[in-house]
Structures are given as C-alpha cells and as structure tokens.
Write a protein that binds this DNA or RNA. Structure first.
Lengths: 222, 222
DNA sequence: ATTTTTACTACATAATCGGGTAGTTTTCGA
DNA sequence: TCGAAAACTACCCGATTATGTAGTAAAAAT
C-alpha cells in the first residue's frame, strides 16, 4: 500500500498498530513528513499486523495497548517473537502497573502516553533508535521504584547474613544435608536457621520461602 | 559550613557525596549558582554524610558509587533508611549491571554517568524533583530489558497454561493435595504436571522450580 | 556475676516429596 | 478412522521435609 514511498538505507522504518484510525493516520502523516522515517505498515489490529511483511522489516513499531482482539501486550510478545530486533514502543492511555509492566515483560523498550505531542513522538523514536528507552518521567520513576528493596515490616524480621546464605541454597534446591556441608554446620544446625527463616518470612515451606525471598528482593532475580 | 546561604521554601535542597574534591566543588558551585538550588552539605564519604544533619533535610542527594569506605550502593541504602523522601541520584563512572541494579535496589531513583554536562545535571535534578527518573538512554534501555521475558531455549520447554497455574500454586507452598483440589484433578494428575514442569525447567524440587520460574519471569515477581 | 538470648546439636515422627512403573482416556494429526 | 501423543489416574517406596521437644555452649545484656 505504501510501496510508492521510496526508502534509502539509513532511514528508519516504522509500523503503526492502533485501532483508532484518526490517531493512526495522524501519526503516519507525521512520520512520513520527516525525512528520516518511512511508515512501512499501518494496522488496526495485531491480527492484521502479524500477517504482514511490514513488521518483519520495521525498525520501530508503535503499538497501542487497548486494541480489540489480541491486546497490545500479547501483540508485543508475538511481534518480538517474529522480529526480535524491532524496537517496540507502547502508546497507551492507561498507566497502571499491569499495563506498564506487562508491556515491558512482553518486549517493549519504551512506553509513552497517548497524549504525547508530535515533537515528543518523533524525539522518542529517535531516542529508541539511538539505544535509549523513551518513557514519560512518571513511568520511569515507577519502573525504577520497582527495583527498590522492601524493608521488613518489623526489624526483627530482617534476615541475618547466614540466613540469607542458606536461603540462597534453598533456592538452588539443596537438601539439609548438602547445605550443612556447605556452611559447616550439622544438619540440625541448618534446620535451626531454616526454621528461623520461615518464621521471619511467615512461610512454611522452601518454595514459599524462595518466592517471598525473591519478592522481597532478598534473593537475586536477575 | 554553608549556613551563610539563605534558603526559601520552594528551593530544592541538595547534598553531594563524592570523594573527588574537584568534582564535588564544581558541582557545588554549579548548583549554588542556580537560584532554585541550595547545597546543604558536601561530603567526601558516606561516613561523614550519614552523621550530618544535611542529608536529613536534603530533597536530592547526588551520590558517587566509587567511594572509599562505605560504597555508594551501601550508602544509598543507609541514606534512604534515614531519609526515605530523599531523591538519590547516583553518579558513576561504571555502568556495569552490578553497579546499576545494585544502586537501584538500594533506593536510587536515577543513575547518571560522571561525564554528565552541567546543563544535564541541572536538568536531571529538576526532572527528579518533578517525579521523573533521570537516566542516560543506555541505562534506561538496560533497565527495561531486564524486564523482558526470556524465551525458552527450546520451544518444547515452554510451559502450558495449566503448568503455569500449578507452578503458581507451588510458589504459594501448596501441597499436591491442595493443588489437586484447586485444579480439580487427582493428586497424581497434579504430579504428572509437576514432573513435566521439572523436566522443562530442568529442576528437581519445588524451591528450584519457583526460583527458575521467577528468573524466567514465568512467575510474577512484583 | 548472673540471667537471658542466640546459636547450635540431637532425636523423633508424621507428612510430604520426587521419581519409577503402568494402565486408561482424551485429543488430534495423518 | 486409525494410531500416536498428550493428559490424566493409580500404586509404590525410599528420601526428605516440617515441626515439636530438649539440651548445651557461647555471647550479650542486665
């Protein structure tokens, strides 16, 4: 459909997936108006988009979250499966945690609010191409905050160094006996500490302890 | 030491912790030159800083990572314990994962490279105060990428929906029996799926499965 | 100096797990 | 429609786990 438009090799190819046709065509016109961008494809749904050649060849994909049928979040996952080099930028009216973190998990490298101005949109795409991650400041803050360690509610629930060590062995699936060898304690000595871990984390099994340990960022998740 | 400088209430108070005295005084001079900022304290180490009143009263804290004694990462943790409202911005020459994610876990809300220009530094502090998270584009990308789901190495290792459901129950520490009740299967039916989960994740216990499930972002960590 | 707490060791036991084997039903592609 | 693979169910069993109880030695608090 847009085969008439010529592209030379240092241009940035873009696809747009957005069900609102006004927004879609507005962006298309905007980007095609810039020398450095070519809009390869413009789609009203993920279903259409994934069938196309355009998304395989796009450097950047602007993706709405609130789409009929396959959601933008699911769509991002499919698209990054098809074209893992594509830089997916979500454009959403929502900014709840589920939308944001769901998108990011699905492979998006940027997250903008739909109210983004034309200049900001263009600058965001440029930023993405240069290796950055366009986000609104508020979303950036949310993302960074999600890394912050939780403080234990009660100070007595803070794990000791030895407990943290043992919790790590638990996460590796080691038995009492194996852990005892690692930390030079008797099997019952290890049990003693594990009981204490369970109390502090308010759990009753290894699996739960590991789960909570990761959620509280006591255990490494990365 | 800086008590001569007057502060009115809509000014942004800043403390600087940086062992290089040239960098430190340069920033101090820079910020004091701006009407909106007051540098309350300027320290060569975290040890000095945590003793001071300044960090308790600072809106923004510029914190070097490579400090002698208490590292910037540990320092960030202590400082956010003392003043949880402080906006901690790390300023580092390193940009390895450990420095970046360590800082973020310890409570930093921004991460800049030491080569930051004066204008960028000022703009970054403004951004932080406005609720954003100053980062270089490359760091932002690293951060966002850390959210991305891992694709299983082999397609046959992808967990089915039922397996994911059951893995979630495992993370909650439920027994075969409890899970069986939840998913309307026999105990051995649940076992069947758990065996399959173990094979796909290459583990041999619940704790390991949960750990891997979180690392692969199959299980929610947030 | 004395008490208390913390860190361990020891033993016991019911419950639960992980894994092997095997049979049946359901699903689904050929 | 046939046959194979996937989804269950069932039974077995040694190993491991969670938890209770109890004792000891060292460290910390009084």
């Amino acid at each position: 459909m847009h085969n008439l438009i010529k592209k030379n090799n240092d241009m940035v190819t873009v696809s747009i997936i957005e069900d609102n046709i006004y927004a879609r065509t507005a962006w298309e016109t905007l980007l095609n108006g810039e020398e450095e961008f070519v809009v390869l494809g413009s789609f009203g749904s993920c279903e259409e988009a994934v069938e196309s050649e355009a998304i395989k060849k796009s450097d950047v994909i602007l993706l709405d979250i609130g789409l009929p049928g396959i959601s933008g979040i699911k769509g991002a996952e499919i698209i990054s499966g098809i074209n893992s080099n594509a830089l997916i930028i979500m454009i959403s009216i929502q900014d709840d945690d589920k939308s944001i973190f769901g998108s990011l998990q699905s492979g998006a490298i940027g997250y903008l609010h739909k109210s983004v101005s034309p200049e900001e949109l263009i600058e965001s795409i440029r930023l993405a191409v240069r290796g950055g991650s366009p986000m609104t400041p508020q979303i950036a803050r949310k993302v960074l905050k999600s890394f912050h360690k939780f403080k234990p509610e009660h100070e007595q629930d803070r794990l000791t160094d030895k407990e943290i060590t043992i919790l790590n062995y638990l996460a590796e699936g080691k038995s009492y006996k194996k852990i005892a060898e690692e930390v030079f304690l008797s099997v019952d000595g290890v049990k003693y500490h594990i009981r204490s871990i369970y109390e502090k984390l308010h759990v009753h099994s290894r699996a739960e302890a590991v789960n909570k340990g990761q959620k509280l960022k006591i255990l490494p998740v990365l």
